[in-house]
């Protein structure tokens, strides 16, 4: 009994410590900008909701533009990943063809490949294609199934479905495409949901790609916009900066609450973050 209580108290303390930075951010966004560093404690001594509307318009463009940009990229990335990765996964999990094993091994190999090796040449190629300052460099790779983690996740899922389903479909005259479309895809929806949620969170937080490819502030995504608060440093802006930081994290927290089940299964299967 007492060990249980100790365990409980320990967990509560650790949980409070873990949540502190997030709560601190929320609380700072509600304090008048000048008091973020002078007024101790999480509970604001005086409340100031103006950080939100002020922060919204503090940068070159209204924050809604950055949010809209990020949403466009995220939605298209999700579509790209779902289509291209599920096609590849079905091929790997269910079809037989020469070279399948070799390709599967290559696919697993690309999961370990550090992306930095590809940065310079990709930049060079995208520059020659005239794609700098467009969303193509951020989107096209997702339509070409370059994120092997999602393929692997879907392969794992599809292999666990009984093969009798495919056989029955084949006997009824379905080719591989109809089998995929009518049978495997509807049954794989949980894996699709996991992929969609992970894509959402990682693309939403993605900083490096936009930093490299987007220079026109009209195209900026939320993370790039947030960093501008750091560049234009003025004490009075701290409150606004944290207000917009909170706005930027809200969709992730929302998706986390809605999709916790899928997230937990997803990382347990592939080690995705």
């Amino acid at each position: 009994m007492t060990t249980n209580r100790i365990r409980h108290i320990g967990l509560c303390l650790a949980g409070a410590l873990m949540m502190y930075p997030l709560l601190w951010m929320l609380s700072s966004s509600l304090k008048p900008g000048a008091t973020v560093f002078t007024q101790p404690g999480l509970w604001p001594a005086s409340w100031d909701l103006t950080n939100y509307p002020d922060g919204w318009t503090a940068l070159e463009h209204p924050f809604s533009l950055y949010l809209a940009n990020s949403f466009v990229i995220v939605i298209l990335s999700i579509i790209g990943n779902l289509v291209s990765c599920s096609l590849a996964a079905y091929g790997f999990a269910r079809l037989r063809f020469t070279g399948r094993r070799l390709f599967f091994a290559l696919m697993l190999g690309t999961m370990m490949l550090p992306g930095h090796v590809l940065l310079v040449p990709q930049y060079v190629v995208f520059a020659k294609l005239g794609w700098l300052n467009t969303y193509y460099p951020l989107l096209v790779p997702n339509f070409l199934a370059t994120n092997a983690f999602y393929i692997f996740l879907m392969v794992q899922f599809m292999r666990a479905l009984p093969t009798e389903l495919d056989d029955a479909a084949r006997i009824d005259g379905c080719g591989p495409f109809r089998t995929f479309w009518k049978i495997i895809m509807p049954l794989s929806l949980p894996a699709f949901a996991t992929t969609a949620i992970f894509t959402f969170i990682s693309v939403w937080n993605e900083f490096f790609g936009p930093l490299l490819y987007l220079t026109d502030s009209e195209l900026y995504t939320v993370p790039l916009a947030l960093r501008q608060f750091m560049d234009s440093e003025g004490q009075s802006q701290w409150g606004q900066m944290f207000a917009m930081s909170f706005v930027s994290l809200a969709p992730v927290i929302g998706f986390f609450i809605a999709g916790q089940k899928y997230l937990v299964k997803g990382i347990a299967t592939t080690g995705l973050k």
Binding site: L95, T98, A145
Partner: peptide, 12 residues
């Protein structure tokens, strides 16, 4: 099925 395999894998 062999041809289909490559079609499914083509984006990848």
């Amino acid at each position: 099925e062999g041809v289909a395999g490559y079609v499914f894998l083509s984006p990848w």
